[in-house]
């Protein structure tokens, strides 16, 4: 890969919920083979941005294009097989099993091979739970099951929109998911992931987008974006450089913070 093609791009994205402006005038580009981490405080518009990019929320203004073609012009199946979305809180009603939930990834193309479902479940470490009801899973397990569904859905070089799949995982599973995402990117996938944890962002991202109040405060290479200084200003908290990226220093109360987590 020399000059990676932009798979997913957005321009002028604005979303208003009534009088509240969730995001304003955002521009995003996700090239093949790269992982873009979106960071920001709670309610900074990360999820809203990701929902627009995944095509499940229609923006008030602005456009999203997949492979150069506006999302709304894509046929359903073609779009679904190229663009996958992992929601922050995956839900599944009814008594479907974990394996069935993963197989839904192939809905738009008329089904999916059982072997692919098994493979995807193994990749996220859920193979032993394949036949358990989805409703029995913990939040972290549900997110991994949804991750497996996305893997089945979009194929190796697809575009994956992941809304914070790391926060509810134990460190071993965080590591597994990071490796899954990096492996996909290495195969040519374009990934956009909302991330809370700077060390996770450090491990996963090629590029970062820092959001504050629905606006971009930084967009660029991860090395530049993930500086203790920038993160400190973004989160209102002191960060120090550590061996695995910038690390917050909790409990010191350096800066007044109202709603930061």
């Amino acid at each position: 890969m020399t000059k990676a093609a932009v798979r997913l791009s957005a321009d002028g994205l604005t979303v208003r919920f009534g009088a509240v402006e969730a995001i304003a005038e955002l521009a995003v580009a996700a090239p093949a083979g790269r992982v873009l981490a979106v960071l920001g405080r709670n309610a900074s518009g990360k999820s809203t941005l990701l929902r627009c990019l995944a095509g499940v929320l229609t923006p008030t203004a602005g456009t999203v294009a997949l492979d150069g073609r506006p999302l709304k012009d894509w046929p359903r199946a073609g779009r679904a097989s190229r663009l996958g979305y992992l929601a922050q809180q995956p839900q599944l009603a009814g008594g479907f099993t974990v394996a069935e939930s993963v197989a839904f990834g192939g809905h738009a193309v008329g089904g999916v091979a059982a072997s692919a479902v098994g493979e995807a479940l193994a990749t996220v470490g859920l193979e032993p739970l394949a036949d358990r009801p989805f409703g029995d899973l913990s939040v972290g397990q549900r997110q991994r099951a949804a991750m497996a569904r996305v893997l089945v859905q979009v194929g190796a070089d697809g575009v994956m929109i992941l809304d914070e799949p790391f926060a509810a995982q134990d460190p071993g599973e965080v590591d597994r998911l990071i490796r899954v995402v990096r492996a996909r990117a290495a195969e040519g996938a374009a990934v956009i992931a909302a991330v809370h944890d700077a060390t996770v962002a450090h491990a996963i991202a090629d590029d970062v987008l820092l959001l504050d109040g629905g606006r971009v405060c930084f967009a660029g290479a991860a090395g530049d974006g993930l500086s203790p200084d920038r993160l400190g200003r973004l989160f209102g908290l002191d960060f120090v450089a550590g061996p695995s990226g910038p690390t917050p220093r909790f409990g010191l109360g350096i800066m007044p913070s109202d709603d930061s987590a």
Binding site: G55, V56, Y85, Q91, G94, F96, F104
Partner: peptide, 20 residues
């Protein structure tokens, strides 16, 4: 039926896998 099954997912997820 397969559409109804897939629509058992959350709204956003169902839309993302191509459920109208």
């Amino acid at each position: 039926s397969s559409m109804l099954d897939a629509a058992s997912l959350g709204d956003d997820e169902a839309r993302s896998i191509g459920v109208p």
